[in-house]
Design a protein around this nucleic acid. Structure first.
Lengths: 225, 225, 225, 225
DNA sequence: CATGAATGAGCTTTCATTCAT
DNA sequence: CATGAATGAAAGCTCATTCAT
């Protein structure tokens, strides 16, 4: 049995040849990222000290530097993580069977749930991204922005079809995806930050509303019938 | 005659009791605000130092403190200014004759122009507001958020009318205003920050697009006719 | 005639050759000294700002500099004043008819009253004097210390007489004056600063006690009779 | 045997559970206190900068803050030290066999030696204490003053006995201790600060003189015999 | 002369980063 | 590798002094 387990371990290691050491290293890296993320979300990037991160991650301060070359790199690691997660939401949404409306509905509820759980992480990230912080590797920054763009491109895909989007051909579908995203983020910021409603409510209504406004608009259809 | 002159003097002094000194003081205060605003927009609040502000404003560091009790107060001064300006855009938009669509179109182009000129000032402000930076006077903070809300309420007014908004009665018009604002800010962030297109283009197209999406949605009207 | 007038002027100048302007100047100087003294006593020298002094003296800050070249000079002015007052107490005491004990009793009550009225002024002065503050003109400092010494010398005078002081000849009378002064200042510091008894009490008891200890000691006279 | 050794090890660790690290930490803390004390004595508390302290202690500025939360805390640490040392002088004096005179003689020479070695530390401390610097924790301040009082109470103890003190019953013995202390401090201030005689002289003469004045007074005993 | 706005050197304190253990 | 004490550059802020009015 023991051998078998080992072999199983080896099998998986054939795909990802990760030794125990390597696995532990990754695990510790994740723990650090988790701790830092919590604090960045709660207090912002500049406002969070490495002492706090180390204490919260239950590691020595020096250890953090064995995993991330600087506080900035640590932040970039979090952005990487986040970008992956957001991209996953996009891909998940796009995989939903049905028309664009259903895919966007899924995206909307995915994002709202994510913001509810991760707070202003996206806000903090965009804030830091925006100010091309002098120290950040410009290459790295471009790469991150590219990944953000990729999310919108994924969302834009169903909108290229004229049956899904009456504006197809007249305007950039990515643009439209950006607008949808804007509504979502506007909604989240208003609801979670300004109004601060933290009670666990159903937010599928909100997702429905936003999707409905996006696809149908709010105007009375006077010309119908 | 003497009385008359005196009274005339008093009359004008009632309207403009502002001495040259006072005027110069105000002017310098505006210069400082302008310099600080530039830097806050470019680099964020925390990342801007008072030395930089002083240098950029071409004043001594101490002078800044003669006008604003702290860096925080200076920032609050900028927020005040900004809130006034944004509220002015709202009121200007609402005063446009015609239906809600025309008012929102005006608001959209107003905001886009404002962001083009002032950069991500709003973004920076919301970022700081949100984190309720410990030192900020809580009363002051609430007051600022109230003023933000007031802007949305102004915008929401034309949406309370069912002829303007098919959703009137089913959802909060302020919510809708927030969504519209979200699209606008999403658009601006995408265009000015991410893509960084700074060339002076016409952005009435963008305003039209956003307004159109908001009122008519992007869906094909298959059921028409 | 001119000479004469001048001389008369000089003569009277010893009494009052002082023009209105000069008189007003002196008066303003005194006002500034008074205001500064109040604040130095209350808060110490370093802790008192020139803004406070100007406000309390009801003069512009620049005006202070027309009368005193620096904050330090202002402080030296106060020291001058104080030294004069303390020397006056010494001289007043020494002029009392009777033996040394009566003179010292008068000195003691004079000092206690002075400290009661002027608070820790002497303490503040000695504190600043002691640390040969780098900026203080060394000549000025020596001069001040000389004046302090002069006070003790005045007090020491009646102690040079062997009928007044059994130790005359064996120890320096100035030393003894210093010890008496030490008791006085120890008493005042303890009573006014440590215990903080501010109620207007009679302090002739204290003066009597101190004088009595100084002249008679506290030991039981077992060998009397 | 093993247990025994272990236990022995534990026993000694109970008495001295101080690791090398801990010992070194204490040693560095002492070094910082020593450096700060030197400078505070020489220049006063307000006039000493943390840069100077760091330089004189041969530590980085930040290191000081690893040991003391603020300049104020550092000063309080010094006060603690000093109060302990002064109290030790009191207790040592009181433990001397013999009558009050012998105890006070010991106290006098102890204080003179202490002041000679530590300069006007006490003067600086009292100066700061008195002005109840706004930031100082009031509780801490009261505690310090209580400790000062305790020293006087210790000294006052032998004076409660009527055979030692002809004034017992008529005046507070603590008061008398304060007067003795005043003479001592007056003497030290005069000798070490004003006159600045730094040569290593014998000062038992001074202690004798002060004690003699305190117990016997300086008056000629005309009524004797 | 009186004034007080402007000034910048200098203060205390924080914190990302290094490195000896 | 993990650690956290040591570090000093850099931050926000104060205030004695100057000088144009």
């Amino acid at each position: 049995m023991k051998d078998h387990t080992d072999q199983a371990g080896q099998d998986s290691s054939l795909r990802e040849p990760i030794s125990r050491k390597e696995r532990e290293k990754r695990a510790r890296e994740m723990e650090i990222l988790k701790a830092a993320r919590d604090l960045f979300v709660a207090n912002g990037f500049r406002e969070t000290t490495l002492d706090e991160i180390a204490r919260h991650a239950e590691f020595g301060k020096g250890t953090i530097y064995n995993y991330f070359a600087s506080k900035e790199e640590l932040f970039l690691g979090i952005i990487d993580q986040t970008m992956d997660e957001v991209l996953a939401i996009c891909n998940d949404a796009i995989a939903v069977p049905g028309d664009a409306r259903e895919k966007f509905l899924r995206y909307a509820s995915g994002v709202i749930r994510y913001v509810k759980e991760n707070g202003e992480l996206l806000h903090v990230i965009y804030h830091e991204l925006h100010r091309g912080s002098s120290t950040v590797n410009v290459t790295k920054l471009r790469e991150i922005l590219d990944r953000a763009r990729r999310g919108w491109e994924v969302l834009a895909r169903p909108l290229t079809d004229a049956t899904q989007n009456r504006l197809a051909g007249t305007c950039d579908p990515v643009q439209l995806a950006v607008l949808f995203d804007g509504m979502l983020r506007g909604y989240c910021f208003h609801r979670f930050s300004i109004e601060g409603s933290q009670q666990v409510e159903d937010y599928s209504d909100a997702a429905e509303l936003i999707t409905s406004v996006f696809f149908d608009g709010i105007a009375e259809r006077t010309h119908e019938g």
